[in-house]
Structure formats: C-alpha cells, structure tokens
C-alpha cells in the first residue's frame, strides 16, 4: 500500500475565516476515501484545492508521480458538485474534447469516450446536445469526462447530493464499479454513502480532521456491543434489576478490569448495557435471571451504530 496523495497541513483562509485549518491526511493507492462532514465543514474547499482550482494559503500536497503542483492535474479526474458543460456540444463531443485537453490524440480520445459513454450509461444520448440532459445524465457525463484520460485519482465533490433517489443509486452503483480500477476521493455529508462505498473515511469538522481511518477499523474500535434488556413490570423483577445494576456500578467503581460490563443504564423496566464480551455477558445475564426467576419480555443484542459515532464526533 503506497500513498498516492499526501496532504500536509493544508490551510485555506478567506479573510480571517479559516475554512480549512491544517488538514493532514494520506490517500492510499487503490483506496476509496470519503471526506465526510456536515455542511460548511470545509469539504468543498479541500476538494477544490486538491483539484487545483483553489490555491491553498499554506501547506502542501504531494502526489506520487508528480514533482510539483501543476503537473498533478494530469493525474486527477475532477467532478464538481453541479457540473455544467458546453450545452451546444453533444455528450460524446464533450468527452472527446476533455480527453484531448488531457493530451490524448483525437483517435485515442474517441476510443476512450466511446467506451466511457457506454459504461456510464449515456450511450443512447451521446449524440444529443447536452442542453437536453437531465441532472442524473449530466452527473454521468461528468464522470465520463473526468475518467477519459484514465486518472490516477478521481476527485468528486458531493457526487450524489443533488440527485433524486433513483439517480443517486445508479451513480453509487457506478462508483462501486469504478473504485475497483482507480483511487477515489469524494466528499459527502451522508454517512450512509460513505459507509456503502468506502474503505477509508476522513471526518472533518470546522476545517479540521476530527477522525480518520479505515471504516472497518473505526467501526471495530469505536463500535461497542450493546445488550438491551426489558423486563415485565413486576415488583421482584424491578428490584432485581436495580440491584444488578448497582452491583455493576460497584464493580466499576472498584475498577475491576474483569468486569464484563462497561456501562449500564436503567430506564424504568428496561436497561441497556455496553459490554466487552457479548457472549459471556449474555450468558451471565441469562443465568442470573433464570436463577432469580425474572420475567424477561425482551433481550436484544446489537451495536452502537456508525451514525451514533458520526453524530458524536461531529457534534462534540
């Protein structure tokens, strides 16, 4: 795994406001990376700096295979948030034009464009003027023109945000295919899209990186198993639950590292436990309850979701 792009202390200030404030991250070759954050976090600014449309106030970006800034534009395919095109051109012509601007010969560009319009699913409309395209078709055309010179890195700014649910799913499916062939970086404010597509995620908040890493790692590290328990509302059950939770808290206070439970919360006749070892904790709970003849109405094992984590990181 080698780093395709290293972003070091990237900062962009508009007047006194720092839209991006010392962002630091690495994009590994072949990975799909999501830049995740709420609106106004500095996602678009970061993307535009990487694409070379915006000059950073300070910091640098190091591309593998490019000596300096400027040259790296050949390595990048860029799709803006709401792409616009020359509406008087046909889709096919625009992709060929984009290819030629990237240094392909006319024949190469035509060949590549032909494959791509097919691939992104606008082959039927390729000979029509772009002015008649729908939003989803423009997004696909945007992808085709970004990919025409086989870039090392595909950079997209909110590729699906402006689309309706169907267009959104189509573009996501397309991206899922594309990420097998090239490194992808895209920004989004929808966690679900990042989770569905990406290997890595960089969560930014107020221009700073709040959390980054592989989605799997983050999920495994930060996600905790949870057992939700609900009892029938009779006297003995309630008493037992109160006592049980008290015991856990006491154990916690004594800093007993062997305790299976991390936290325990009681609400009325129900309780939720964050646990370290699901199986052992479940066994223990069921055993205890069987011994005391407690009336269980529901026992559920689950996980704290990435959504919870995202909200926590972003809202902190």
């Amino acid at each position: 795994m080698t780093a395709l792009l290293e972003v070091k202390d990237l900062t962009k200030a508009f007047g006194t406001v720092k839209a991006v404030d010392g962002i630091h991250f690495t994009i590994a070759e072949g990975h799909c990376v999501a830049l995740l954050g709420p609106n106004g976090a500095g996602k678009t600014t970061t993307i535009r700096m990487i694409a070379g449309l915006l000059k950073q106030t300070s910091g640098q970006m190091v591309f593998k295979g490019a000596g300096n800034r400027g040259e790296h534009r050949e390595l990048i395919g860029y799709l803006p948030q709401t792409p616009s095109f020359h509406n008087w051109m046909t889709g096919f012509e625009f992709v060929v034009y984009a290819g030629q601007l990237c240094g392909l010969t006319s024949a190469e560009a035509k060949k590549s464009a032909k494959e791509l319009v097919e691939r992104v699913g606008i082959a039927g409309a390729a000979k029509r003027r772009i002015g008649s395209y729908s939003g989803g078709m423009k997004q696909r055309l945007g992808l085709a023109q970004a990919l025409v010179h086989r870039p090392k890195l595909l950079v997209m700014d909110e590729p699906v945000s402006a689309l309706d649910p169907i267009g959104r799913r189509e573009v996501l499916d397309l991206l899922r295919e594309l990420k097998r062939e090239t490194t992808v970086l895209f920004s989004t404010h929808v966690l679900h899209d990042a989770e569905a597509l990406c290997d890595d995620v960089i969560i930014i908040r107020e221009g700073k990186v709040a959390l980054q890493g592989a989605i799997e790692t983050i999920r495994d590290e930060r996600r905790k198993p949870i057992i939700n328990l609900q009892l029938e509302n009779d006297e003995s059950s309630r008493q037992w639950l109160a006592l049980f939770i008290q015991t856990i808290r006491d154990e916690k206070r004594l800093a007993n590292q062997l305790s299976l439970f991390e936290t325990a919360e009681q609400h009325e006749g129900a309780a939720s436990f964050a646990v370290k070892d699901v199986d052992a904790a479940r066994q223990l709970l069921i055993g205890e309850m069987a011994r005391n003849q407690i009336k269980i109405s529901k026992l559920e094992v689950g996980h704290s979701s990435l959504e919870d984590l995202f909200m926590k990181v972003v809202g902190e």
């Binding site: 860029y78 803006p80 095109f85 990237c102």
Partner: peptide, 13 residues
Amino acid sequence: LSGVSAIILVKPI
C-alpha cells in the same frame, strides 16, 4: 458564470 470553466481549467492546460 455557467461553471464550465471549473471543468475545463482543471485539465492540464
């Protein structure tokens, strides 16, 4: 104004 230049000027020209 239309935003086409954002797509064109990121190309290596």
